[in-house]
């Protein structure tokens, strides 16, 4: 009797890993931008949506999922550069509410803009032929494409870690997030660093969108839905903490998946319950440093 539930639970846990992967890609970008620039980027979900749409269009032009997978995050990241350089940069040194309002407005404009460009009706994207099948994992049939999403997420995380820990630019980024004034005093041009970080964070949101497209379809409101979940994960992980974003993203993916198994109606609510509990016990999040978010 017990082996069937155990198999089902294993299947459920594995499915949760993919949900968590998308969460992590979103939350890392948000956390990176917040940690370094104290910008609460409300437009993050819209860049996720844009990544999915741009990939759809690029697939139409290049006829290749792989080209779209590489190019779409770069296109979206480049757009992130422009947003930082010409919009957000003007608001540094002002109240943190100002960039929040700016990005909030931007997200609304982007959703409506996407409807103008790609239409109000959602689009479907197919995974590439090579990844379309399902593979038998012993306890379940699992779509190869979802395994691929897990692999891409892991590869991106490792690259990001190497970049932050092993390169001199990474060193400056880490220093800048601790004490921007001191780094400036040492003669580093932090404007360029912020531009870079914003671009990287946005490109990761774009990548998450590209990856989510073939699983969930592409529609203008897709970013509005995920941004709330992503903020919850960043708060639970600790604002600005990359390790926190990864751990909280994966844990939330698992919690949502397992809750869906036992009490599907609660699946929407559970992440907020978890957030409330975490904040009661650790007000600055699992990995957060007290005072950073103030």
């Amino acid at each position: 009797m017990l082996d069937i539930p155990l198999q089902a639970l294993a299947a459920q846990a594995f499915t949760g890993l993919v949900l968590g992967g998308i969460f992590v890609l979103m939350a890392i970008g948000l956390s990176l931008i917040f940690g370094l620039m104290t910008v609460v980027n409300f437009a993050h979900g819209s860049f996720y949506m844009l990544g999915a749409y741009v990939a759809f269009s690029l697939m139409g032009v290049t006829k290749s999922f792989w080209a779209a997978l590489v190019l779409a995050p770069l296109v979206v990241g480049a757009l992130g550069f422009l947003v930082e350089r010409f919009l957000i940069r003007r608001l540094y040194g002002r109240s943190p509410d100002d960039p929040l309002l700016l990005t909030f407005g931007l997200s609304l404009a982007m959703v409506e803009g996407a409807k103008l460009v790609w239409g109000k009706i959602g689009l479907t994207v197919d995974p590439p032929r090579q990844l379309a099948a399902a593979v038998n994992l012993g306890f379940m049939n699992f779509p190869v494409y979802r395994l691929f999403v897990i692999a891409v997420t892991a590869a991106v995380l490792v690259s990001l870690w190497l970049f932050l820990e092993k390169t001199s630019v990474g060193l400056v980024i880490r220093a800048g997030s601790r004490d921007a004034l001191m780094v400036r005093a040492l003669g580093v041009d932090l404007n360029r660093i912020w531009l870079l970080v914003f671009g990287i964070g946005i490109a990761m949101a774009g990548l998450a969108g590209v990856l989510a497209g073939p699983m969930r379809g592409v529609y203008a409101e897709m970013g509005v839905e995920i941004i709330i979940d992503s903020f919850v994960i960043v708060v639970v992980g600790g604002m600005g903490s990359l390790a926190g974003a990864i751990v909280a993203g994966l844990v939330m993916g698992e919690i949502v998946s397992l809750t869906t198994f036992f009490a599907p109606r609660l699946a929407e609510l559970i992440i907020f319950i978890v957030m409330a509990i975490v904040l009661l016990v650790r007000p600055s999040g699992l990995f957060g440093e007290a005072g950073l978010a103030e």
């Binding site: 089902a8 299947a11 049939n141 379809g217 998946s257 869906t260 198994f261």
Partner: peptide, 13 residues
């Protein structure tokens, strides 16, 4: 909110 993956293993079982 068309993300069904978390439901599918249970149905399959």
């Amino acid at each position: 909110k068309p993300e069904f993956s978390a439901h599918l293993p249970k149905i399959q079982a």
